[in-house]
Design a protein around this nucleic acid. Sequence first.
RNA 1: GCCGAAGUGGUGGAAUUGGUAGACACGCUGGACUCAAAAUCCAGUGCUAGCAAUAGUGUGCGGGUUCGAGUCCCGCCUUCGGUACCA
Length: 975
Amino acid sequence: MGQLIIKYHIKYLILRQVSINLYYKIKFLMHYHPENIEPKWRQKWVDESLYKISNESVKPKYYVLDMFPYPSGAGLHVGHPLGYIASDIFARYKRLKGFNVLHPMGYDAFGLPAEQYAIQTGVHPAVSTDENIKRYREQLDNIGFSFDWSREVKTSDPSYYKWTQWIFLQLYHHYYDLSENKAKPIKELISSFEKFGSAYIRSYHSHDSDFTANEWAEMSPKQKDDTLMNYRLAYRKTGYVNWCEALGTVLANDEVKDGLSERGGHPVEKKAMMQWSLRITAYAERLLQDLDTLEWSDALKSMQKNWIGRSEGAQMFFEIVGHEEKLEIFTTRPDTIFGATYLVLAPEHDLVKKITTIEQNENVEAYLEYVSSRSEIDRMSEVKEVSGVFTGAYAKHPFTDNEIPIWLGEYVLKDYGTGAIMAVPSDDERDQLFAKKFGLDIIDVVDKSEYPGSTMHDKTGKIINSDFLNGMEVMNAIQYMFEQIEKTGIGAKKVNYKLRDANYSRQRYWGEPFPIAYNKEGVAQPLSVDKLPLTLPELENFQPASGGKSPLARADDWVGQIPDMTLETDTMPGFAGSSWYFLRYMDASNENEFASKKAIDYWQDVDLYVGGTEHAVGHLMYSRTWHKFLYDLGLVPTIEPFKKLVNQGMITAYGYYAENLKFDDGNTLIGNIKDIKSDHNIHVGSPIRLAYINEHLDSQNRVTKSKFSEYIESIGKHFNVLNDTTKYYWAKDDNGEDYFTVNIIQEKMSKSKYNVQNPDEIVTKYGADCFRMYEMFLGPIEQSKPWDTKGIDGVNRFLRKYWSLYFSEKGWEVSDEAPTAEENKILHTSIRKVTDDIERFSFNTCISAFMVCVNELKRLECNKRQILEPLTILLAPFAPFITEELWEMFGNKTSVHSADYPVFLEKYLIQDTVEYPVCVNGKKRDTVEVSAQLSQAEIQAIALSLDNVKKYVEGKDVQKVIVVPGRMINLVIKE
RNA sequence: GCCGAAGUGGUGGAAUUGGUAGACACGCUGGACUCAAAAUCCAGUGCUAGCAAUAGUGUGCGGGUUCGAGUCCCGCCUUCGGUACCA
């Protein structure tokens, strides 16, 4: 009997357990659990190569590209993926719309930080770079991007940089022909030299003296090489470069910010060095003109325009008294020539030594020494400080024959124009400051009395004191002078650009080696293509070699690997590999070409490029130039590489500063509380960064003493903090508690500021879908905004609500019933809104459209397949995991990401009634719902009959009634 | 200095061609459910006055155009980004 009872009891227990299990299973299903969904699909998409795409397709192509990252040791923070998420949504959207979408990713893997790290730790840059890439890849995969990883590109991979070297050789083997306005083989130039010397050559060059065919024939190989260097698009010259001692290398202009290196913020100085350069100035005009063909923001285009800096002016020759050479100057204001009372040369100008008189020699020498001692930062910080010296020489004014002095001045730049100016102190601020300081003549030549408020900068006024120009308007006088200058043969009209040729040599290890060797005479010998790639040697010590040379100079075996030759030991700069990577993705594993013609002809160019503004001038300028060069060679079919460009804003972090805490040793340095040693005491006095204090702040950004102690403990510190309230500057709040106020500012995310937010943490907590949508929900993509997780619960709630549409207490429950008109209207309103917004890159409003849609469907308790299925596709680009899971539960066998985009049908939006706001004199007084068929007169009558409206209209004169169909009604009455 | 972008509730932001300012969220307040908490759900929420209906007011500031302005025009202020002796 007892046994039986026990038996039953066990049976009951088992049954109970089964039903409990079932209950929990259903309960579990009912709720959204990203941690169970996401890993499964991540794996499945890899297994099925879902995002792998082919170069052959009948579908139209679309190329969505992100600026590839430099894989830094700090890993990705939440700011990096912002642009990637946007582009991924767009790529997925285009795929659903039936395009064959190229959406690749790779790494800009050469660069200084890895090498600096190697110097400090001895870890080979290749090793640390690969580790960093591995970490990046894991972080990227976590977020669910649809990259085709089979096309991954790594600039430091020899199979990639083989082609970077190859393109460099093409640049080396070409010159820029001005008659045809394109790059042409240097061979053609040589044969022209052989026949005609330098005559008949219209090319972009840095050569200053002509030669005959005979002279050419008699040149030594070295002389020929030197001459050709003046024409090649990749050439070697001695020039003043931006030398950074701390980094031990030269930098390009765009790598220098405010006289400091962009990476690291070290001082930069001008130094004369033998360097490889790219003649990008040859392309200046095309780079400027073709901006018009691009769908880039005006802000970005104007940045490029400024950087190119085109200005029209005149080139003029001044005779130097007692010398044969003429002095060539550049001016945009030839109309002011009669106001030119002296000339100024850049201190580095070639003629300085020649024209300086014996009496002035000492002064000039001293001045040159002073100038060379000054770093860029010195020069910049004292821009208004005038310095200069008289050379003792005089020039003849071409129109008055007066002798005017020639000076040297720091404010005239060697690299711009001709490095020499005519100074017109009456109409140029800099010239005026200079003239006043050194007591030089000033002649007024422009009368601006008719233009009150105009400045020296404006090209307005009447010319005076100027002989044949007197009485002319400035703009007319400029034109007239252009003619006069050409007529009298003293010069010519000329266009000048601020853009400089790019320094292309770096004295570093971790970059592409130049495929160049030098023979005993020092003549450059390009390596033949079959020798490529020229790979980097293995090194153990990454310290720069002596004499400002790259560490490669110490690898003797490597340098001397070709008999009787020495290899170039400099390496290429960071922008080399990134100037053409977008082409490599088209055909990433091609061993015979940088990319096949077929692949390039299919993919053409990048339709959408997404990246930060920090590359506005550097990378984008270089890529455009390389692309145009390849176009000239017939290797790419398009003149521009990036049709449309979107700049994502930066995600910043909040910085929390205690304005008045300081160390008890009185040190007032701005510090970071995490870096302060625990045995230190802190005082009130000067800003200290308080990372992660936000949770301890009250609504007025104050922290009380007790909260502050909690905070100190939470960051693992044990200060004897601030116990003596008499000693420190605590304030007292209403409850008598001590507090201080924390100052909150926006700043960059960086490791050293302890404000970096790792996306992995968010993905673990909320799922990738939520992370993606939340980043988009933060605000417009182009805008900079601080990271804040405050609103993430809203998105999380949305996803759970969306999920819950598909489930009842019994589990999955989707009905096959036909949708109501209202349900269809909700769906199609969303389809239209979301589609429009994706097209205009307004992703934040897409998210709110989804929220509105789901809120309304939830209100109607809609679980109809015909509504939910299209909605799932619509949402798939934003939330690829949850939609894929639900899509599968619908019973679909193929991925939601290869489904067809839902079609918007206008018919579901047609309404029988319209709700009108009724305004009186522009102020809303009532609303009224009327039939959509009513005429304007009928609507008017209804509007006037409303009680709320009568109140305002009664006894007054209705002058006008405005009915904007479907929009609003306005009654104009006279008071 | 010059060039460019932007200023909207307590917060992030919406308003696409001049047509209901504050969508959608966060936060906050109150309520339901719960032994309780979390989660969830419901209601409210620009500001001022009022029990309320409602009225006034409100998109950085000052003017203007318009029946109507966050949006267009003129003049300023502030913030951010770029640039810096460019002749």
